[in-house]
Design a protein around this nucleic acid. Structure first.
Lengths: 182, 182
DNA sequence: CGGGAAACGGAGCAGCTGTTCCGTTGTGGG
DNA sequence: CCCACAACGGAACAGCTGCTCCGTTTCCCG
């Protein structure tokens, strides 16, 4: 990638893939990404030898952003606001970016590139839950597994048709929050 | 299908498809169903001209069973027991049969064969929610849309690896119930 | 028990996917 | 300015899917 046009094309591919994945999910064919980028498939494969690498590259920044929000929540002195904010932000992201949560929660090789981030995410969530429980804002018997299950449920809604998914995701997020609160 | 062997083979196909769909979901290839039934693909297609018809046939009895449970819930004098029972039964079925809820809730042509059942299901659920709200056992502001969203969330968990899905589904069902209860 | 139609099996078609090959284009160092 | 070689485009390959065609087998009625 020593030539300027190569770098330019790489950027176009990443931008096209980001838009495509966010709106249509991670299942978008490579041909389609190439077409949207105005590029041949070979160019795409020169920069990203495999589909998984393209996905990982596109998602890296989003995952990092996710970590930032998580660390911010850890700094919040109000345990309920911190935990509920994380759930709500998660739902919000799910509405606007179908791809991200597949990386953080889904099975398969896509998430493998983010194992470390996933673990950090899980640790931080655990801290938030422990704090919230200590503050007495959680219903009796609720643990981090319940919260993770709730997030998984929200993430699993990604396959719904886009017209209804936003409303459904909002409702489910509300149910989860009502379900864990004391 | 005037010959006895044809009927025999048809039954084998249905049995194989039922087992395959229940354990692996509706995505099982036609070749695989044929192989499990010990039959050629042409035989399979002679009895079921299209994949959708095979799925509809296999699911018909389950959907009917679903309707029976729903009608039973409508006869329950205790509004909360009726509604929570429906949610719990739904989750239970989700654990044991990955295929069924795709038919009742999923998008696409598979569910089209059951439109009437889906509508009846929706009406009955609405009755249960109205009764529960009238009895004052629901949290303020909860409506049938929230319950439907909760069921959708449970149904969407079908794609999880089988080892963890049972626990997660149980937890989500618990969250949904806690989230709608007064 | 014989023969004609019903039913069968599996190769094959069409269309989708991810990935590779190779002739062509055009950038940029000397 | 010019040409070596980095980078390109798109046809082509391999492997999956749902579905069909057709020669062969098997039932069952008379």
């Amino acid at each position: 990638m020593r030539r300027a046009d190569a770098r330019f094309n790489r950027d176009r591919v990443v931008a096209a893939a980001r838009a495509a994945f966010a709106s249509a999910g991670l299942g978008v064919p490579m041909r389609e990404v190439a077409r949207r980028a105005g590029v041949g498939v070979a160019t795409l494969y020169r920069h990203f030898p495999t589909r998984t690498e393209l996905v990982a590259t596109v998602l890296a920044e989003r995952v990092e952003d996710c970590g930032v929000r998580m660390r911010r929540a850890l700094d919040d002195p109000d345990p309920w606001r911190a935990l509920s904010g994380v759930v709500r932000e998660f739902a919000e992201r799910q509405i606007h970016d179908r791809a991200l949560n597949e990386a953080l929660l889904g099975p398969g090789e896509v998430g493998a590139a983010f194992q470390e981030e996933r673990r950090e995410h899980a640790r931080a969530l655990n801290v938030l839950v422990v704090r919230a429980r200590a503050a007495g804002v959680l219903r009796d018997g609720v643990d981090v597994g319940d919260v993770r299950a709730g997030l998984l449920a929200i993430a699993s809604l990604r396959r719904l048709p886009a017209t209804t998914s936003a409303q459904v995701i909002g409702r489910v997020a509300g149910l989860v929050l009502a379900g864990i609160r004391a």
